[in-house]
Write a protein that binds this DNA or RNA. Sequence first.
DNA 1: ACAAAAAGTAAAAATTACTTTACATTAGGT
DNA 2: ACCTAATGTAAAGTAATTTTTACTTTTTGT
Lengths: 76, 76
Amino acid sequence: MGERAGELINRIAVLRAEYKMTQQELAQKAGVSRQTIISIEKGKYTPSLALGFEIANAFGVDINEVFQYNKGEVGK
Amino acid sequence: MGERAGELINRIAVLRAEYKMTQQELAQKAGVSRQTIISIEKGKYTPSLALGFEIANAFGVDINEVFQYNKGEVGK
DNA sequence: ACAAAAAGTAAAAATTACTTTACATTAGGT
DNA sequence: ACCTAATGTAAAGTAATTTTTACTTTTTGT
């Protein structure tokens, strides 16, 4: 029960490159620490929905452009 | 520092009514407990992004149709 | 090559999400 | 009125996220 069914992938690094935004800047805009951005960007854990939205509108894009959820391989 | 900048509102109750889905059923489809659904539906806390997506595709709708984030009133 | 900025790693502490259990209330059907 | 399903409340415990601090490595510009 440690992991949820699906996998969450994010395009934060891509978007940061595209918008030339540093982790520090993104962290400030989203209102979290730089560590949080790093961890999420690297997929170490999944952020809260609120933070997801904050990150999305730090870039000014829809949340679906930042995060994609591939629901769990039920058929294994 | 207890609260994030913006407020997250959800349309879970509305969607459940629309799709005639019980909290129990939604909980099962999303892979969480009924309590979790209740608490989120009532706005007691904000779910993880993964759970947000799970709830959205339990209804088969986009995540933006379930959750809306009004970014914090910075100007107070 | 050098300096500075950006990115990365790690780990403990604090906070928040989620589970489980158990019981109280409300709504619907007969 | 009765029964049952659905919703709600509460509290204690576990698991996950986020912060804070400190240090290492990589990248970039000059």
